[in-house]
Amino acid sequence: MKQVIVLNVNGEPYTVAVYPWQTLNEVLREEINLTGVKFGCGSGDCGACTVMVDGRAVSSCLTLAIEMQGKEIMTIEGLAPSGETLHPIQESFVEKGAIQCGFCTPGMEMAALNLLKNNPTPSDYEIREALAGNLCRCTGYKKIIEAVGVAGQKMKEASERKTS
């Protein structure tokens, strides 16, 4: 039976009625219209559906919505601080040519955030490892890896500016 739950997404509470078998991906895309969250495979292999739950990147296609009550969910739509300003990760992806078809981009940026929030100066290997759950068919990953490195630098500088 449908159960009414409250999902906290990008800082906003959404009251939704969900079936137990509905995934977070379906509810975000179909009920809350956050279509920046993509659906690429349904088996946790492509990463296009990646969102942050309580600060960790997860595959929304393998997450039941019903289990998300009381959690902080962040989708790509919640990454930019405002409509006019991009997050350093987004900025770097655009500037460095890390985007082509763009279908993997939201998930890729979430995976990058998952890495950079704890480790803004990752090694090349750490970046590759962090992105290994996100498939891209267009870019060959090279510019994505570069963009993540640059984004980390930007995030580090921004946080240093804040603390100094």
């Binding site: 895309r29 179909e30 219209n33 956050l34 279509t35 920046g36 969250v37 993509k38 659906f39 989708t75 790509i76 739509e77 990454l79 930019a80 991009l86 987004q90 900025e91 992806f93 655009v94 500037e95 040519g97 985007i99 082509q100 763009g102 279908f103 981009t105 939201p106 940026e109």
Partner: peptide, 20 residues
């Protein structure tokens, strides 16, 4: 940089399955 980079980076780019 791509014409549509911002739209894609912010998840606002609409693909066919996003249409309702």
């Amino acid at each position: 940089p791509r014409n549509d980079g911002r739209a894609k980076a912010t998840g606002t780019a609409v693909y066919t399955d996003d249409i309702k």
